Computed example of a mutant assay.
Amino acid sequence: MYCLQTLSSSITVIFLGLCLQTLTTSEAADIQKLLEVNVIPMGPAKPGEKIELACSVQSYWTNCAPVKVSTLSNPPIDFPFGNLNYTYCACPGEAKTFYWTIRSSRTANIGCRAAFLLDDVCPKGQNLIPPQNKGRYANMKTLKIIN
């Protein structure tokens, strides 16, 4: 009987350990997301029609840090007024939206990418050191072209 109780207790401890490890791993993954990039949904467009691409970027880093925001597309699309790359000082809890005018003759996946930089774009006196693990964060949406 003692062996069965010990076996039951061991299985319970292993199960709880696995559950705690899973919770800790998912929380760590959330903490690692230092920038959130969201593409504002676009409605369908006609071939060659100009449409606005809008992307919102929010920082979860503990200090202000320089960030570069750019576009992604597959297949390539046309930017009638230029494909601008934006650089700005991202501070914790602040969201900023960036805009591009785009045009495509076919359905495309379009999105935005944000990455921490080492450039000097934040005002003097603010912490300008970006996180050491400065990954790129991206989000894509599909622009449907309807004939």
Rank of each mutant, 00 (worst) to 15 (best):
P41R: 00
V69G: 00
K68Q: 06
A54P: 00
C89N: 11
K96Q: 13
T6A: 03
G93I: 09
C89Q: 08
S10L: 13
G82S: 07
I31R: 15
L4A: 14
G43V: 00
M1L: 13
A65C: 02
T101G: 01
W100Y: 06
D120I: 04
G125F: 09
E36V: 03
P66L: 06
A65I: 01
V57L: 12
C3L: 02
K141D: 14
Y137N: 08
V37M: 03
D120Q: 09
E36T: 09
L18D: 06
R103Q: 15
T142D: 02
K134H: 14
T22L: 09
I146V: 14
I146D: 08
W100V: 09
C91Y: 05
I77Y: 00
E52K: 03
I14G: 02
S104K: 09
F116I: 07
C89W: 13
T101K: 04
T25W: 10
I77L: 01
P76L: 09
C64W: 05
G17L: 04
L4E: 15
K33T: 13
G111C: 05
D30H: 02
G48Q: 01
P66A: 05
V67E: 03
F15R: 12
N83I: 00
N83S: 10
K33Y: 02
T101D: 07
I146E: 13
G125S: 13
A29Y: 15
S105D: 03
A29R: 15
I110S: 07
N147E: 10
E49D: 13
E94R: 14
G17E: 07
